[in-house]
Lab assay of single mutants.
Amino acid sequence: EPREEEAEKYIKRANGDYDKAQELAKKDGNEEIAEAIKEYKKR
């Protein structure tokens, strides 16, 4: 799923820090991806 791939990219950029990844996504205006990262975190 493209959303998950995007989320993974942010998580990698944030060195595995989900909260930081979420912030990066929000900064880029990717609210949807920020949500996907939140879902990811719950797994």
Rank of each mutant, 00 (worst) to 15 (best):
L24H: 04
G16F: 10
R3T: 13
I11M: 05
K26Y: 11
G16P: 01
G16C: 09
E1M: 13
Y40V: 10
I33W: 03
R13V: 08
R13Q: 14
D17V: 02
Q22G: 05
K41V: 06
E8R: 12
E1I: 13
A36K: 13
A7K: 05
E32W: 12
R3D: 12
R13S: 08
A14S: 04
A7Y: 08
A14R: 00
E23C: 09
N15T: 03
Y40E: 07
G29L: 04
K12N: 10
R3P: 12
I37E: 02
L24N: 05
K41Q: 14
Q22Y: 15
E8S: 06
K27Y: 09
E4P: 06
E39S: 06
G16L: 02
R43G: 06
D28H: 04
R43W: 09
N15Y: 09
K12D: 09
I33G: 03
R13K: 12
G16A: 01
Y40S: 07
R13W: 14
A34I: 12
A36N: 06
E1K: 13
E5V: 14
K9M: 10
K9Q: 11
E39K: 07
A21V: 01
K41P: 04
I37V: 04
A14I: 01
E39V: 05
R3Q: 12
A7V: 15
K26A: 08
R3K: 12
A25L: 00
K42F: 07
I11T: 01
E31S: 09
A36S: 07
K41R: 10
E5I: 13
R43L: 12
Y18S: 02
E1Q: 12
I37R: 01
Y40G: 05
E1T: 14
E35A: 12
Q22C: 13
N30F: 14
Y40L: 15
G16R: 03
I33H: 02
K41W: 08
K9L: 07
Y18K: 02
N30E: 08
E31Q: 09
E39N: 08
A14D: 00
K38E: 11
K26P: 01
E35Y: 06
R3V: 13
I11G: 01
K38L: 12
E39I: 06
K38I: 09
D28C: 03
I37Q: 00
A34R: 03
I11P: 03
E31D: 13
K9D: 14
G29T: 02
A34V: 13
A14T: 05
K26G: 04
K26F: 09
Q22R: 07
K42W: 05
D17Q: 03
Y40I: 15
P2K: 14
N15L: 09
K26M: 13
E1V: 13
A36Y: 15
I11D: 01
E35C: 07
Y40P: 02
K12L: 07
D17E: 03
Q22E: 11
A25N: 00
E4Q: 12
K38G: 08
E1Y: 14
Y40C: 12
K38N: 08
E4D: 14
Y10A: 03
E4I: 13
A7F: 11
D19N: 09
E5N: 14
K38Y: 07
I33E: 04
E5Y: 11
R13I: 12
E39G: 05
D17F: 02
D28E: 12
R43H: 09
E8I: 14
G29D: 05
A25W: 00
E23L: 09
N15S: 06
E8Q: 11
R13C: 15
Y40T: 06
P2A: 14
I33N: 01
E39L: 06
N30T: 03
D28G: 02
Y10V: 04
A34M: 09
D19H: 06
D19K: 08
D17K: 02
E31M: 14
A14H: 00
E1H: 14
E23D: 09
Y18L: 11
D28Q: 02
E39H: 07
K26R: 14
G29W: 02
E6L: 14
D17L: 01
N15R: 08
A34Q: 05
E6C: 09
A21G: 01
A14G: 03
Q22V: 15
D28W: 02
R13G: 05
A14E: 03
K38V: 07
K38M: 11
I37M: 02
Y10F: 03
K27H: 10
G16W: 10
E4S: 13
E31H: 14
A14L: 02
P2G: 14
E31W: 15
K20R: 11
A21S: 01
E8D: 08
K9I: 11
I33V: 13
A14K: 00
D19L: 09
Y18C: 12
D17M: 02
D17S: 04
A21I: 01
Q22A: 14
I33A: 13
Q22L: 14
E35R: 11
G29V: 01
I37L: 05
A25Y: 00
I11E: 02
R43Y: 08
A25D: 00
N30Q: 11
A36G: 04
I37A: 00
K9H: 11
I37S: 00
E39R: 10
E6I: 10
R43A: 10
E23M: 10
D28A: 05
I37P: 00
P2F: 14
E23W: 08
I37F: 01
N30I: 03
K12Q: 10
E32I: 09
L24G: 01
D28K: 01
A21M: 00
K26S: 09
P2C: 15
I37C: 00
D19R: 05
A25T: 00
G29K: 04
E32G: 09
E31T: 11
R13E: 13
A7D: 03
E32T: 10
A25K: 00
E4G: 09
E4A: 11
E31P: 14
K20P: 00
Y40W: 08
N30H: 13
E35L: 11
G29C: 00
G29A: 04
E32A: 12
E8M: 13
R43D: 06
R13A: 15
Q22S: 10
I37N: 01
G16Q: 03
Y10C: 04
R13F: 10
L24E: 07
E31K: 09
I37K: 01
E23V: 07
P2Y: 14
